[in-house]
Amino acid sequence: MNIFRLAGDLTHLISILVLLLKIYATKSCSGISLKTQELYALVFLARYLDLFTDFVSVYNTVMKLVFIGSSLAIVWCMRMHRIVKRSYNRELDTFRHYFLVAGSFVLALVVHEKFTLQEIFWAFSIYLEAVAILPQLVLLQRSGNVDNLTGQYVFFLGAYRAFYILNWIYRYFTEQRFGRWISWISGLVQTALYADFFYYYFMSWKNNAKLQLPA
């Protein structure tokens, strides 16, 4: 474990806590894409298949359970919770995310490290996570002004993978082992997708203005 990876995991955890706070405190999920939440639940379920077979550390197991549990809880909340589901922007959250799932799975069948079920699903989860934010970014552009907690949620979610990239660089130089280039490339694509969001987020913070993404 190194400081970059710890910062990445904690930033990821913070993004989930901010999202839970927004939904719980405002009893509303307006501005949140259910499709992105479903994609993330799929990412964690596909990536942590080894949850019960390979024990790495208590920290690793606990964080996996937290990520799987919180993503499923948010999807359940947005679909089933009597009050929360009423504020879901169904008419704006129209990204056809099934194509992202299909595309990532096909890519994983072609590009992976070993042709085993676990490796295929691991690669699938890495590719899918790289594009999972797209429905959320499209929803933000369509929904005009973005409330603070939603903006912070997306910001931390984008920042966590940037820390992971620093972690891979650190490990490359200290452990003399190359990282998994599947993670490298997907992580760079994932972070790049946030680039314009980070720009508008920084500008809104600098000008102390409401976060507005151009349509």
Binding site: R5, N60, W122, R180
Partner: peptide
């Protein structure tokens, strides 16, 4: 040969 490090990351 250099090996990819194990899946100890989240």
């Amino acid at each position: 040969p250099k090996r990819a490090y194990p899946k100890d990351e989240l």
